[in-house]
Amino acid sequence: MLNDVTFGQYYPTKSFVHNMDPRAKLLFVIAYIVAIFIANNFFGLILVTLALIFFILLARVPFGRVLRSIKMILFLIVFTAILNLLFYAGGENDIVLAQWWIITISWQSIINTIFLAMRLLLLVLGTALLTLTTTPVALTDGIESLLKPLKYIKFPVHELALIMSIALRFIPSLMEETNRIISAQKARGANFEKGGLIKRAKAMIPVLIPLLVSAFRRAEDLGDAMDARCYSGAKGRTKYKKLTFTWRDLLGLLFFAALITGIVLLNTYLLGRFDIIWQVQQWFGI
């Protein structure tokens, strides 16, 4: 039941993107998100889309695999799109297409809806590509390394990273344990499938309590094991894995600098002259 939930969605293959430094990838994703949000016209978003397609090809991850990540937030996208479509209060030059009670559908609202949906889709697909091409362990290492400057304000960077990586490591163990407890409770006559939401939620209590107890026992064991292996905090500790920036990351940096520059240029020089409403009006002869 729970075993097919693989944590993370890493797609193991060898590619340019897989080999990039996780720190660089994290920074690039931030740059990518910034690019999505500073783009204020469709040409900007199309540019971002092209960049995304380019990176997906470069990562050698099948498009289907990347698109699958939309499933989880499809509802959110549709929901916000519908709200936007129906309740957007148009501006002065707007052309109203249909109106009923407080609901107004106008050109501007249709365009806004498409624009918003596109932004959300690009956002999800881009971050999905990060998790598809980077293992959770590498991501944790990357985050630890990026947060390192915070050490100077006494922020426990190493501890936080260790907590994250231990949490990641225990997910399969706890899942296994959950399955075992569910089986044990089923063997004692528990029923997890029948009844309404509340009844089913209640049925989970006899699973959660033993799980919690065992998690504490595991934590204690792990603490002993870490002590026995000489763990004494970040002080005097060395690190086996070292992250290194390579030519790949330099190319990535140049690419994203170009992307953002491109979008800024599109924003300044195209807006107004190629206003999308004006375009549509031209096409439809309204």
Binding site: R169, R217, L222, A225, Y240
Partner: peptide, 18 residues
Amino acid sequence: NQTVASVVEDDVAFGPEN
């Protein structure tokens, strides 16, 4: 309950790192 990392070599490295 005594493995700290998700990859074998990282786990073996834990002691020497400490």
